[in-house]
Computed example of a mutant assay.
Amino acid sequence: MPRHRIFATAFAKVYPMYVQKAERKNRTKEEVDQVIRWLTGYDQAGLQRQIAQEKDLETFFAEAPAMNPNSSLIKGVVCGVRVEEVDDPLMQKIRYLDKLVDELAKGRKMEKILRQQD
């Protein structure tokens, strides 16, 4: 199966789109960063390094310090796809991030976006 071209896309290319989407809905870059850090385990310096070094999405997720164990609680549809049903593990991580930014832009409260085990 051919690799999806999104995997080779620089995280630095999609990151500004996430920020713009959030800012259009009166959310902040800081909130976008918080969501990304929650999902991937990067600290702010590590996140900035990934952007500055223009790592592709595959590398960005491969080098993530620790995917949040609660990321499996992310459910729902993004781009017409149920995130919990995505087979490819890398594509699923990308969709998780899309979904979190989506929820941020839709005005969900941060404590709801950053899933916690009950």
Rank of each mutant, 00 (worst) to 15 (best):
13 K>H: 13
20 Q>S: 15
33 D>W: 06
53 Q>E: 14
17 M>H: 14
61 F>K: 02
61 F>A: 06
25 K>S: 15
69 P>W: 02
60 F>R: 03
94 I>V: 15
59 T>Y: 06
25 K>I: 00
60 F>K: 00
52 A>H: 09
95 R>T: 08
54 E>A: 10
113 I>Y: 09
98 D>A: 04
5 R>W: 06
75 K>N: 01
67 M>R: 01
51 I>K: 00
17 M>L: 15
79 C>P: 00
55 K>A: 08
97 L>F: 10
3 R>Y: 12
3 R>F: 06
74 I>Y: 00
67 M>N: 04
76 G>D: 02
21 K>N: 13
34 Q>V: 05
117 Q>L: 14
62 A>S: 14
110 M>D: 07
73 L>I: 03
118 D>H: 12
76 G>L: 04
2 P>G: 12
66 A>K: 14
92 Q>T: 05
7 F>Y: 09
53 Q>W: 07
44 Q>W: 00
53 Q>L: 12
58 E>D: 08
6 I>V: 15
4 H>Y: 13
51 I>V: 14
28 T>F: 02
43 D>L: 04
14 V>L: 11
21 K>S: 04
45 A>G: 07
33 D>M: 07
77 V>D: 09
2 P>H: 15
84 E>S: 11
81 V>F: 08
102 D>Q: 15
88 D>N: 12
70 N>I: 00
80 G>A: 06
102 D>F: 11
32 V>P: 02
92 Q>A: 13
93 K>C: 03
1 M>H: 08
101 V>S: 02
104 L>F: 04
108 R>H: 11
117 Q>F: 14
93 K>H: 09
44 Q>S: 10
71 S>T: 03
29 K>T: 08
26 N>E: 12
77 V>E: 13
23 E>H: 02
21 K>Q: 12
1 M>T: 06
93 K>F: 03
85 E>W: 11
60 F>M: 05
107 G>P: 05
102 D>C: 10
19 V>Q: 14
84 E>T: 03
79 C>R: 01
40 T>N: 13
37 R>Y: 06
49 R>Y: 07
110 M>L: 15
74 I>K: 03
104 L>G: 01
38 W>R: 01
17 M>S: 15
88 D>K: 04
49 R>L: 11
29 K>G: 06
40 T>F: 07
35 V>K: 03
78 V>R: 01
1 M>F: 11
102 D>Y: 08
51 I>D: 03
10 A>D: 13
10 A>Q: 04
60 F>N: 04
8 A>F: 09
70 N>A: 12
33 D>I: 02
70 N>H: 10
116 Q>K: 13
60 F>Y: 10
108 R>P: 00
59 T>E: 15
66 A>M: 10
103 E>P: 02
82 R>S: 09
67 M>I: 05
88 D>G: 01
55 K>S: 13
68 N>D: 11
